[in-house]
Each structure stands twice: as C-alpha cells, then as structure tokens.
Design a binder for these strands. Sequence first.
DNA 1: TTATTTGATTAAATGATTTAATCAAATACC
DNA 2: GGTATTTGATTAAATCATTTAATCAAATAA
Lengths: 388, 388
Amino acid sequence: MLRVLRKSGPLSRKDIAARIGLTPAAVTILTAKMLDAGLLVERGEEVENRAGRRKILVDLDYSRSFVGAASIETEGLTTALCRLDGVPLASSRLPPLDGETPEQILARVATSLLQLAASHNLAVAQLVGVGVVVVGSVDRQTGRTLHDYGLWDQPVPVVALLEAALGVPVCLENNVRALALAEMDFGGNPGDGRQLFLKYGPGIGSALILEHRIDTGSHDRSGEIGHTLVPGNKLVCRCGRTGCLETLASPAALVAATGLASPALILQALADGDARVKELVQTTLGHLALAIDHAIQLLDPYWVVLYGSFLNHPLVLGLLVDQLVELTANPQAAAVIRHSALDEAAPYLGGAAIAVRAFFLDLPADQPGNSRLDEIPTLAPRLAGIES
Amino acid sequence: MLRVLRKSGPLSRKDIAARIGLTPAAVTILTAKMLDAGLLVERGEEVENRAGRRKILVDLDYSRSFVGAASIETEGLTTALCRLDGVPLASSRLPPLDGETPEQILARVATSLLQLAASHNLAVAQLVGVGVVVVGSVDRQTGRTLHDYGLWDQPVPVVALLEAALGVPVCLENNVRALALAEMDFGGNPGDGRQLFLKYGPGIGSALILEHRIDTGSHDRSGEIGHTLVPGNKLVCRCGRTGCLETLASPAALVAATGLASPALILQALADGDARVKELVQTTLGHLALAIDHAIQLLDPYWVVLYGSFLNHPLVLGLLVDQLVELTANPQAAAVIRHSALDEAAPYLGGAAIAVRAFFLDLPADQPGNSRLDEIPTLAPRLAGIES
DNA sequence: TTATTTGATTAAATGATTTAATCAAATACC
DNA sequence: GGTATTTGATTAAATCATTTAATCAAATAA
C-alpha cells in the first residue's frame, strides 16, 4: 500500500484497494491505522463532475518526518536532512581532516546531522533513518564498506557505528547506485522502473535499476557499462582489464586527450568552435554511444539517465544523442536518453533516497512475507501507542 | 510452496515451512490439500542418523499429470507430451502442408496432441496444459502471435483457438525465450535464476532470464545480443539496423564467409586442421566473445548458456571460451559459460516448460495477490471435489 | 527401559480480510 | 426542488488462513 501511494501519488481508498487487491473495507482499516501512526495524511477530495460521493485522497505524509543523509568522499563529507519526498531541509559540507580514522569521520557525520536538526528546529524524534553513500562497493547484509578505492583500506561497519551513535536505522549504499534510486524516486520522471544510470565524471560510474530496485547481478557486478570493452583499446583499467570504456571515454581520459586542463575548458573550446576538440569529443562520445546502444539492446531500459555537468551541456548532449540516433537507426532512441533532473550540487540525495526507501519498507519490492504492520521495525514504535 | 518444491526438490514439511515463512502446522494443512488434489506426493523418509522423528519428504508429483507442447516452424510442426519435470513421453514431427492456414495448422496441433495421448495410453483428463512456441514475437496478454518472420503475416489468436479445441489452458511464447526457461527448469543446472541464453543457429537468438523469469525489458526487446553492434560492420540486418552482430557472426554468416555449404562442413574442416577456416571461425567467435563479455559486464549473469550444435563442438567451444577468458582477463569467465544440456532434437521443450510453469502458477514469480487455492484456475477443478 | 530429540499433527485462538449492509455526499432526473 | 441514482467510505458480522500450544509419532541416546 505504501508502495502504491509512493508511486501513484494521492489516491482514494477505493483506488488503493483496486491496486493492491484488497477490498475498500480492508483499506479503510489499514489507512486508519496509518493515519493514526502519522504515516499518511488526507489531502482533501477529488472533484469530478459525476454522481456519487467524492474520493477522499490519501497520501504519504512527506512532511511529518525526515531522513538524514551523508556522502563520504575523499574531498570531504556532505551531510543533509531531507523530507521524505527528497526535498532538502538543511545541508552542510565538511572538509576532510588529515589522518582522520573512519570512526572519527562517522562520528563527525553523526554530530553534523544532530547539529543540522538542532539549527533548523527539527525534532530528532522525527528523524526516521539515515542513508550513507560511499564511493566503493558495500556489503548491504552487514552494513559494511568493502574496498573503497582509496578512502578506507579495510571494511568499516558504517551501519553499526552510526546506528549506535544516532539510535535510528542506518543504511549504506554505493553512491552511484543510490543516486540512481534518487533519480527514480525524486527525479519526477515517471517510468516503469527500469533505468540505466550513468554518472559521467571523473570516471564512468553506472547503476542498473530493474523493477524499481537496484540490480546487483549474480555477483554484485551488473550494470558496469564503464567496464565494457572497446575493441582496439589497449589501455589498462584500474579494474585490471585492458580496454575498458572508462580508460578511453571518461572525462579524465578526455582531458588527457585534448590536453586541456578540465572538462570546463573543453566545453569552452567547444563553444568557441575548436574543430580539433570537437572531433576528439565526438570520438569519445562515439565510444560512449556505442556502449549505450549495447546496453539498450541488452537491457531495453525505459530511461538511460545521464548525470554529470559535462554531459549536461547542450552541445555535448546534442552530439551524444546524434551519435546514438545514428547508431540505432531509430530517432525514437533519443527519447530514451535524458539528463538527470537531480541537483548535482547535492551528492547526499542518494543517501536520502535509500533512507526513505528503508523507512517505507524498501517499497518497490514485491517481497513475500511480512505484511503485519506491527512487525515492521520502522513502524512498530509509531504504532505502539495506538489503541486498535 | 509449489515454487519452493520445484526449486529445491523433495522437502520435509518443516523445511518447507522454514522456506516459505509459515509454521509447520500451516504447511501440514496445505500439503494435505495438495496431496488430495494430486499435486504432491510423499516420497518416503529421509534417513539421518540423528535423534527424533524422520522427515517425511514431500515433492511435486511429476508423473500424475502431463503437458502438451508444440513448436511451430516453417519446416513443420513438432508436438509432444511431457511429464511435469520435462521428461518427454511422446512426440511427433509433422511436415508443413502447402497453403495451410494458421487455423488449419493449429487444428493439426490439437489433433496430433490427442493422438499422441491416445496412442500412449495417457488420459486426456490428466493433460493440464499446452505450451506453444513460435519463431516470432508474441503478445502474452492476448495470446496472439505478432509478426512472425515469414510464417504468418498477421496476428493469430493461438491461445484462443487451441483452448477452444482442447479445453485446457494454452500458453504461447517465443521459441528462444521458452527454451531458456526449459534450460532453467529442466536443464539440471542450479543457479540463482539469472541467465543469458544464446541460441546459435541459423541466426543468433537470445533470451534473458532474471529472477527466474523471462525478462522482456520495457519494450519487449531486452536480451537481444544478436542485435548489438559490431564497430565497422556495414552489413544491413533484417532488423533494419546496420552492423548487427548477427549479420557478421551467425552460423549463416560463417557459412557465407568460409564458402563451405554448412556448419557441419566447417566443423569437419576445423577437425582436419584447415588454417583458413580456423582463422575465420576464430574471428567470428571473437565478435561473439566480445558481445558476450559486454553482456556479462552489464547483466552479471550466473550462466551464459549456449545452445546449438555448432557451438557445442569441443573445438569451437574451446576457441570461444579461450577468447572470452582472454577478454575478461579472468579464468573464472570459463565457469560462467557453458553449453545447454537440453536435447537439441526436441524443439518442443520450451513449450513444455511454459505449460508446466503456467500449471504451477508461473512459479518463479513473487507475484503479490492470490494465494487462495480455490481461486487458482488450474487448481480449482482439482480441488472441487475435496471436502476441507 | 526411559529420556531426549526432532518432525508432524491437532484443536483452539487469533486476526486480517471479506461480505453485506449502511452511511455519506455528490449529480441526474422528473 | 424533491427524489432517485450513483459512487465512495464505513461498519459489523462472518470467514478463513494461520498461529499457538499441546500432543502424537518415531527415531536415537542414556
């Protein structure tokens, strides 16, 4: 029911019943409990010029609770508090400190979140969860980071440490994967829950979303478009293979190829009509387009979402889309690809997305099993004081 | 419960309970109903040298019912009857007739299935469903074929026509996709339900299985590895694009490249040590290996299953695996790729697989909703006469 | 022989959901 | 303008799957 409301906005009890396969009577009972628990709100009536009683719209109460979010990178920490619909309420950026241990970093995260709440008059009791995103891969079972491409050199039990410090549920995810979820949940673009997300810069990060959920594959390695091979490419990748797309078509590779100092300067050169740079960019985007076409053929996504200011530049996006249309021999393919609507200055949005999902029982799943309200960890405390 | 039994063979009531999240008491009740209904059988006790009562093993009754299967191709019809575990009981091949309408073909399918049952002393009352596979794409909602690459030039309501003729549930699927399911369900290789299936010959057909189910993608086009692009390839594909893998690396393309008359002759030349042919084959398999590597990076499958006698030849399979291992820089890749264990002379196995799945409620799904035995179409008639 | 262990079964209790009736609140019709 | 009709929400009794707790069954261990 929460899942349906999340996806399809305010709905009447009758419509909810139809969608989740229960009777209106059952939904009346369920909504009553959840309204009491503060999970839902009634949002007035839907006016239709038609006989009969009007629908009373029910929706998730996005404003009553909030989540914490943190992004831990080598360049520093970003923490934030967000509403359950992803709207940021407060955020802060903290620089990295020399020689700081993981434990100290997480302690700073906890302190920062509490300070943010205090300074924005948000009651900590309404903090329903925290999502942390990191650069490397994570073990979702144990809530630990695995190898982290330079930040931490050993597994860190992030979830356990932060839950001890804050006393609310904490979840952990890779930053790109979490961002892809944020795009799904907060991005405002409807779809069928199948999306390839491509974070362009400084490397080529990607995440695959199937059935509204992060797809991990059989060995936690699916969706790695940056590590598909480009024939003829002899560059050795950090992943150990030779010829990965990332070594040839990442912003870093483009910077190296053009000899310019930054992606911003490349954009400048493009705008100035620099033919040499345009050709280099075109070649690079050609590799990218080919890889994206491969992915489209194999995954048939509803969206291919690009994330990163360089690709978001109209000139670049145009070149990429042109190449893709040419490859697919189908102008409609362009409709599949678009740039993310997320604020690129908010790296914590992924954290907010996973925290919200955790609060709403990881909504998109059709997990068999628990449907008893009082056995749900995040709900139990809220339902404890209720009579019925 | 049926799903768990299907996947994990005979189990005790207690173990079933643990897996489906119910109590042994509930499982006792459920198994009793299903034993009465003839869906399950008790398979003796498991002997463990341990104190306590022995487990009474319960399993699906694969022998009590059977399914019909049909494969409709331009070269003719194949019909068969199979046990619920995929073991063929009877089969027949029928040549195509000139000028035969789709309706006449389906009438022949129905007649053939009834004849097979009659001649093998199988009671039609125990025929619990029929699965039909065709070469082109199908509309699973309406049970119609769509365009069919030459066989039929307009949609044919296969399901409606055959259900009218036979009076049992009929389901329809593309042949490659159904074959991939047969591989999962009858192939005897455990896995986690994620598999890329590749039918090599005469074209390059493929199907993607995720979470134990056929993945269709957002537009019914996922898993099309044969239509990924090979850079530099200028051949126009039947799909309308230029440069598809299939135009360059299918058996048909290989036959054309070698100038030999058939894949069998190519195998012969390879065995004879023909260097020119070996190089051509190697180039072709290189394209295939690259595409497979792409798919592995994007999908992270548990298995890549090859189907087709040409690829099954030790020399060819060896060459392909070598190329793949070289590309991935990881000897483990060899463990992922394997040839199908299915009988290649039985094109109807896919039909049997989808019929069995339909009978067992499309087992692998975690579909929300109906768990009431008496509302299940395939079970209702069997439960009708039962007391409790 | 008895105690213990493990699995299966049973009966009463529970509780979510449905059924069927009713209430609520609008438009449509005469 | 009053009444009928329609549509959605609610309620109470009934239902039915499931759990709980006790018991039975059948083995090994002491």
